[in-house]
Structures are given as structure tokens and as C-alpha cells.
């Protein structure tokens, strides 16, 4: 139970930043896309994005100028959709986020594979050990 709580808390923390990064990447790759398409594309990749999470994030990213949003009424069947695309500002931000994330990944990989370096016992320790 303790482990479960810890894991849930941790996943909540790490997922938040990770999700924003993935949403940026998807919008860049899909060029012009809408919420439902982002969710279903992510799902095919094995990434589950909750609707309740995605739309507020899109809303803020647009407000902050990283995305531009346009309602498309005529070219879409059925009902109007809100299409998102990346702005130059968003592209620059994503570039920095991506580099940072890859750097972190690399460091993490190193941390997981680092060999233990045996440190030589100091002279003082040798001297105290000898008489005993």
C-alpha cells in the first residue's frame, strides 16, 4: 500500500512534464490537429492521455502563445473542430524541452549503468588497522 501510494505520487509528478512534451511532439508531427486526433494517435503509440487532462493543457498552451488554435467549420464533416498547430515560439520552446529531456535520459542511463569504482583505503586507515 505504501509502495502503491509512492508510485502513484511519483507517476503524477513525472507524467505531467512528460505529457506536455509528447503533446508538443504530436502536434508538430501532425502539423494541424484537434483534440480527439491527438488522443487517438497517442493511443496507437501506447500513450494514454485523458481527455480531462489534454484539453486544459491545450487551452493553456494556446493562451501562452505556444500553439495557435483555429475553428474549422467548412472543411470538416459533421461539426466544427478546433485545430491546433505549433507557433514559432512553441517550436523553440519544444526544441529546448526536447534537448533537456534527452540529456536527462542520457544521464539517467549512465546512472543505471555506472560501475562502482573501488576507492583505495587512505594511509591513516592502514596505520590504524595494522596494530590490530
Amino acid at each position: 500500500m505504501v509502495m502503491e501510494n509512492y508510485f502513484n505520487k511519483w507517476i503524477g509528478q513525472i507524467r505531467r512534464g512528460y505529457l506536455e512534451l509528447c503533446i508538443f511532439a504530436l502536434i508538430i508531427r501532425l502539423e494541424k490537429t484537434y483534440g480527439f486526433e491527438i488522443i487517438s494517435t497517442a493511443e496507437t503509440l501506447g500513450l494514454s492521455i485523458k481527455e480531462g487532462t489534454l484539453y486544459p493543457i491545450l487551452n493553456r498552451m494556446t493562451k501562452e502563445g505556444h500553439l495557435s488554435a483555429n475553428w474549422d467549420i467548412q472543411n470538416v464533416q459533421g461539426h466544427p473542430r478546433k485545430f491546433y498547430s505549433i507557433t514559432p515560439q512553441g517550436r523553440e520552446l519544444f526544441g529546448r524541452m526536447k534537448a533537456e529531456f534527452e540529456d536527462m535520459n542520457e544521464t539517467f542511463h549512465k546512472a543505471c549503468t555506472i560501475e562502482k569504482i573501488l576507492t583505495q583505503p587512505s594511509k591513516e586507515e592502514e596505520q590504524t588497522e595494522k596494530p590490530s
Binding site: 483534440g35 480527439f36 487517438s40 484539453y55 459533421g78 461539426h79 466544427p80 473542430r81 478546433k82
Partner: peptide, 18 residues
Amino acid sequence: AEIILELNAHIQDSLQNG
């Protein structure tokens, strides 16, 4: 209004395609 409209569109999409 935009938020509601967008969520509405999402619901329609989900019902039709999902």
C-alpha cells in the same frame, strides 16, 4: 463558450469514431 464547444466536439467525435 469555446471550452464547451470544444468538449462538445470531442464528445461527438468519440461517439462517432470511438
